[in-house]
Simulated assay, not measured.
Amino acid sequence: MNQTVETILNHRSIRKFKDEPVTKEQIHTIIKAARQASTSSNVMAYTIIGITDTSLKEELYKVSGHLHVKNNAHLFIFCGDLNRINQLADDTVSIEDNLESTEQFIVATIDAALAAQNATIAAESMGLGICYIGSLRNDINRVNELLELPQHVLPLFGLVVGHPDHQPDIKPRLPLEAVYHENKYLPFQEQQKFIEAYDNEIEQYYQTRSSNTKIDTWTDQMIRKFSQPTRMDVSPFVKQKGLNKK
């Protein structure tokens, strides 16, 4: 197994960081890695915003509720961005129908996610830790206001980076057989035995991990999560920003 694969398989979310900065060179290397991610038709439909202002981090922490949003060495926010494309077109060309389609919304979201994962692997290869921050969407309108985002730009998620101050256990994932199907979709009934095996594994993990032990299964977590509507303001916000409208 090569070092890159070892880095990927050793991933875990880091939520406690040492009071130690990352260098400008490290930040730029992470961004360079992000920029080399695959992108649909070379659109590069994302923008990365680095948050260095402590008062702004404090405001973003209020949205998220997670201390590591302000207690980190660097916070990146990944945005889906079709504003640049919109600005390229003059009055002689109509691109609105295409720009505001679901297809281009998906493109922007995927481009940003691919860039972020490249950034993650680069950071972890340097011995840094990361954690994705979806909770910035707890109040997406407030984040939009704080970052002064123009039309056709969406704040999708954050990525905190720093020197790890803990080493959490690696959380097990669904079995390969549940997530990888050959030639056609595997009926749920055939997936179920793998999910049940995973429930047993994750229950054991929660009971024996080094911190925050509990009794829970993946199935119970998912039922709880999806039985309670969350962030329902995101859909109208996206449409107000001129995306995913058609």
Rank of each mutant, 00 (worst) to 15 (best):
Q3L: 07
Q3C: 04
L9R: 06
N10Y: 06
H11F: 05
D19H: 07
T23E: 04
K24R: 13
T29N: 10
T39E: 00
I49Y: 00
D53K: 04
S55H: 11
L60Y: 04
Y61W: 13
Y61N: 01
Y61K: 08
F78M: 03
C79K: 01
L82V: 02
L82F: 12
R84M: 00
I85R: 06
N98Q: 08
F105S: 00
L114Q: 03
A116Y: 08
N118Q: 09
E124F: 09
M126S: 10
C131H: 12
C131L: 05
Y132F: 15
G134C: 11
S135N: 13
R137P: 07
R137A: 10
D139Q: 07
I140Q: 01
R142P: 07
L146T: 04
L147I: 06
E148S: 10
L149A: 07
Q151L: 13
H152D: 05
V153A: 09
L154V: 05
P155E: 05
L156H: 02
L159M: 15
V160R: 07
L174I: 03
Q191M: 14
Q192L: 15
K193H: 11
F194K: 02
I195F: 11
Q204C: 11
Y206G: 04
N212W: 11
K214R: 13
Q221V: 08
I223Q: 14
R224A: 13
R224C: 08
K225W: 05
D233T: 14
S235Y: 11
S235V: 14
P236D: 10
V238M: 11
L243T: 06
K245S: 10
